[in-house]
Simulated scan of single mutants.
Amino acid sequence: MEGSERRATIRDVARHAGVSTAAVSKVLRDAYGVSPAMKQRVEASMAALDYRPLALARGMRGSSYTLGVFLVDLSNTFFSVLVEGIRDVAEERGYQVLIGQARQGLDAQRRLIEAMVDRRMDGLVLIAPFGPDEELERLARSIPVSVIGRHGPTEHLDTAHFDTVASDDIAGSAIIVDHLVALGHERISFLGHHEPHDEPSMPQSVRAHGYDLAMTRHGLERWIDHVPGRWGTEGGLLAGRMIASRTEKPTALHGGADVAALGAFTVLLEAGLRIPEDMSIVGYDDIPAAALPPIGLTTVDQSGVAMGRQAAELLVSRIEGRTQSEHVLVPPRLVVRHTTAPPPA
């Protein structure tokens, strides 16, 4: 809780529910002999008081020394880089990592996260989850949570429950547009990513906003162009076909994410465009494939291993009893390779 507000204790829960502290302890430990009515009563009081057990209280039911990692898209190799950082910290701190992948969709995400909670993991790292901040807040009241990719919660929320680690996506989009403008480009398009449950704190929303701000700052409002799609290989292929079919094409593309940028790269080459002579392409993430010599994708490095490590460190400190939230922005860095050049004359 913020400021001088006192954190609810097990005694507060017992008093609110009209039961003994021993009864609350049994519910916390899921001990044998607790009636469904008692469990519901105590859990209702926990929710009303915004109670979350400290590490010491959680120890009563035993620590599993397991960190759960939730993600949706295994095809995005940047997520593998994040997991590498999480795993390194987990091994250093005596934890194991279990990875769960959900299908696309909010309901599938909820089911998987609930299953991970039910399996008594000590905390969860959520990589680019869907849904509103309020839903993350509710989850984080029951288990320590660290979120990668999402930016800090909006101001109206109580932000004392989950932590976030994200690239500074406003700055990342800015350095992409600045680089392309310095080369002489004006017609710069942005490859977007759209989900049914997009939120302002999601990276696709923040990067798109950063692109708009940077284009406006350079006086290029008339060339702002959001190409609809998804940040995956297939989404990049579809976006590439859409751009290739245009009569007036952009001279440069902010690809949103490396996997999408590489998909667009493939289609545009097949359509007869020369990269970068006819069109420049910039990715975002700096996945290992981006550096392969036949590609040499100019991209933004957002220090994936460091982001994973930071998220895991925050999660472990939550498990150990920290209550003050932390929202970390990782400075991005432009990596210039072979897919950007001045526009055609």
Rank of each mutant, 00 (worst) to 15 (best):
residue 166 A to Q: 01
residue 167 S to R: 00
residue 168 D to G: 03
residue 168 D to K: 03
residue 174 A to P: 03
residue 176 I to M: 14
residue 177 V to W: 07
residue 178 D to T: 04
residue 179 H to S: 10
residue 184 G to D: 01
residue 186 E to V: 04
residue 187 R to I: 02
residue 189 S to Y: 12
residue 191 L to H: 13
residue 193 H to N: 15
residue 196 P to Q: 09
residue 199 E to A: 14
residue 200 P to W: 06
residue 201 S to D: 08
residue 201 S to L: 02
residue 204 Q to T: 09
residue 205 S to Y: 03
residue 206 V to N: 04
residue 208 A to K: 13
residue 215 M to I: 00
residue 216 T to N: 07
residue 217 R to Y: 06
residue 222 R to K: 14
residue 222 R to P: 05
residue 224 I to A: 00
residue 224 I to M: 05
residue 225 D to M: 01
residue 228 P to C: 05
residue 231 W to R: 11
residue 232 G to P: 02
residue 234 E to W: 08
residue 234 E to K: 12
residue 235 G to C: 06
residue 235 G to N: 08
residue 236 G to K: 06
residue 237 L to F: 13
residue 238 L to C: 05
residue 239 A to L: 10
residue 239 A to V: 06
residue 240 G to R: 10
residue 241 R to L: 02
residue 241 R to E: 15
residue 242 M to P: 00
residue 247 T to P: 03
residue 248 E to Q: 14
residue 257 A to H: 09
residue 258 D to W: 03
residue 260 A to Q: 15
residue 260 A to M: 11
residue 262 L to Q: 05
residue 262 L to G: 05
residue 263 G to V: 01
residue 269 L to A: 11
residue 272 G to H: 07
residue 275 I to S: 07
residue 275 I to F: 08
residue 278 D to A: 05
residue 279 M to F: 13
residue 280 S to G: 12
residue 282 V to K: 09
residue 283 G to K: 02
residue 285 D to I: 04
residue 286 D to Q: 13
residue 290 A to E: 01
residue 291 A to F: 00
residue 292 L to Y: 09
residue 294 P to H: 04
residue 296 G to L: 03
residue 297 L to P: 10
